[in-house]
Computed example of a mutant assay.
Amino acid sequence: MVKRLQGIRYQFMRAHMQVIYFSLLMITLVLFFTYSVIQPGWLTIESIFLALVTMAIIMTPVGLYVMFRKGGELKGRLHSFSLYISTLSEGKYGAKLVMRDSQDEFDTLGDELNDLGSKLRGQVKSLERLAEEKSEYAKQAHVAATVEERQRLARDLHDAVSQQLFALSMMSQATAKIIDEKPDQAKEHIEEISQMAIQAQNEMRALLLHLRPVHLSGESLQEGITRLIEELKQRCHVDFLVEVEPLLELSQSKEEHIFRMVQEALSNTLRHANASNIELRIQEKDRIYIYISDDGDGFDIEQQMNAKASYGLNSMKERCEEVGGTFKIKSKQGEGTYIDIRIPK
């Protein structure tokens, strides 16, 4: 309530009441000066007080009503400006602020905001054209990038799968030695070996996911993602909840960027999250909405984004920004990860 009374409407009302009562004070001084110095016969103390009380009774509600209406009008116009700025911040650069043709300072500000929206829309178009050009250059540089990708996969295989297989070998040898003497302990070791094997299997499948082609090979985005999910369902011990709407009139560059971001997100989840459930939703409304979530281990976002090894997350963010979109990720250790991507059409 106190915060509401600090609004512009009530500031106008307080200012107007100050003007009214200051005016009444001046009138009072003039009347008493006239009464005491000039002393006209028609002016009495009773008439002075009657006039002042009458003016106060009439001017106070009238002033409050007028300024309440005027303050509400100004508040409404400021709210429309605030709403328009919020619309621009969400990427809806095609929106326009409707003016009243009053040619006051508010209309001037509105025209400037509309010009800003037009410039932002033009810049987004330019970014999309640059993304198209960059996609062509990326195709040309694919051969050179393949060598680097193979080296990275080799390092990942050595750092992750190779070490897990070595641990499996050591654990199985130790289990074989104690299986007759300590069957209960051997059973526990076998269960650990099973979990380690599943983890190594998921790690290998995630690494193989990186070997898939970046391009959709003539498929639509919906077909490519659906086929990718179906393959993962057959190979991984993870439940998928998928809802992918057909996206119309999307450029090839945007489809490839979206496909690659989804591919990268699923790969990261399979490799690091230890998730049992993965949800993927792609919807087309005023923009393209992409939601990816899991119920895995979660992680510290700030630490991971700043780490040199966080190639996947930074790559997804860069790809999203290249097509004029916004990339948000929420994660908490023990509570899973949620990715929200929004791309203008």
Rank of each mutant, 00 (worst) to 15 (best):
Y21M: 00
F22P: 04
S23N: 11
S23M: 13
L25Q: 12
L25H: 12
M26Q: 07
M26S: 10
M26F: 14
I27K: 01
I27Q: 03
T28K: 02
L29F: 08
L29H: 05
L29I: 14
T34D: 09
Y35T: 04
Y35K: 14
V37S: 10
P40F: 01
G41R: 13
W42D: 00
W42P: 00
I45N: 11
I45Q: 14
I48N: 00
I48G: 01
F49W: 15
F49V: 15
V53P: 00
V53H: 01
T54C: 09
T54M: 11
M55S: 07
I57Q: 03
I57W: 05
I58Y: 09
M59G: 03
V66W: 09
M67Y: 07
M67G: 01
K70L: 15
K70N: 12
K70I: 13
G71F: 08
L74Y: 07
K75D: 14
K75G: 08
G76Q: 05
R77M: 01
R77V: 06
S80A: 15
S80P: 04
L83W: 06
L83N: 14
Y84T: 10
I85S: 06
I85Y: 01
I85V: 11
S86Y: 10
S86M: 13
L88V: 01
S89E: 15
S89G: 07
E90T: 12
G91H: 03
K92H: 11
K96A: 09
K96T: 13
K96N: 10
L97G: 02
V98A: 11
V98Y: 05
M99P: 04
M99Y: 06
R100G: 08
D101I: 04
S102R: 12
E105D: 09
E105W: 11
F106V: 08
D111K: 13
D111E: 15
E112D: 12
E112G: 05
N114A: 06
L116Y: 04
S118I: 11
S118Y: 07
L120G: 03
